[in-house]
Computed example of a mutant assay.
Amino acid sequence: MKTSNKLLIVLLVIVFSIPLAMIMSFKSAIRNKQYVVKNSYGYEEMSLNHLKPFKVVMLEASDGQTLTCNIKYGMGYSYKWNNYIKKKHNNIGGLISYRGDTLVISYQPKIAPDDDNYIQDADLDLVLNQEAIIISRGARVIVNTLNGGYTKPLSFDLSRNAELNITTTLDHRPDISDSLSESNRTSVSQYAITCDNSRIDIEAHIRVQKLNIAADNNSTLIIGKNVMIDSLNASIAPETMVEAPYKFIGSIKR
């Protein structure tokens, strides 16, 4: 056999053996749990922390939505932070406590940007299995109705430049309501929303049987074209900005 042919065979063996060795290494790492799963923010995926049952959620944040809370449905009560990890000796800005039957989640951004643990905005998932009252003081609340998301009745109390987004999104990507069929529409029995100097944005591919809204003091109300509402009762202040299909305008009282 010529030397060139021997070299070619050796080269082919090396080329095909490298992927095989990598696969075997990956399988070994997975079997021994020597791997890190990262979420869409690029942070290590953390496990859920269990919570005792509660009836009310109080979200407290400085103005500007420095805290985002994603409401999700599950078998119990739990939470996890998505975009920062508590490090040793790090007094993080996110605090979770109880006041009677109220779960209090507060967040203040770090003051010193040169701190290696500095995070301007915090994002967490909150898992519920019963209807609840969500009180937001300056925080952003997201309810995603895609793929069996949270569909139980909810009451919201928004103030201090808070924001409520009821949406149909896929892994933090833009709303995909326009691409969904009628068979994908989620049904919700009731939402009750009180809004003071805050924003309500309902763009989800849903059917709401009963929607009650009261908005005051320079609030914003947006209802998307893909939303279906059987019964809408909305009372808003004259200065409230409204963007909604014409079919809903008659049910909005100023």
Rank of each mutant, 00 (worst) to 15 (best):
T3Q: 13
V10F: 15
V15Y: 13
A21S: 15
A21R: 13
S25L: 14
K27E: 10
K27N: 11
S28D: 13
I30N: 04
R31D: 14
K33D: 14
S40D: 12
E45I: 00
S47M: 07
S47Y: 04
F54V: 06
A61H: 03
L67Y: 06
T68G: 00
I71Y: 09
K72S: 07
K72H: 02
M75D: 15
N82C: 01
N83W: 02
Y84H: 08
K87A: 11
K88S: 15
G94P: 00
I96S: 10
R99D: 14
G100I: 06
T102R: 08
S106K: 13
P109Y: 07
P109W: 11
N117E: 12
D123K: 03
L124N: 02
L126R: 12
V127A: 05
V127N: 07
N129C: 15
E131R: 14
A132W: 01
I134T: 02
V141E: 09
V141D: 10
G149D: 11
Y150N: 12
F156N: 04
L158H: 07
A162I: 05
L164P: 08
I166D: 05
T167H: 02
T167S: 03
T168A: 08
T169H: 06
H172D: 15
H172M: 14
I176P: 12
E182C: 01
Q190P: 00
A192F: 09
C195P: 05
R199N: 12
D201I: 02
H205V: 01
I206K: 02
I213R: 09
A214W: 04
N217L: 06
S219P: 06
I222M: 08
I223N: 08
I223P: 05
M228R: 11
D230G: 03
S231L: 05
S235F: 10
I236Y: 07
A237L: 08
A244Y: 02
F248C: 02
S251W: 02
S251E: 11
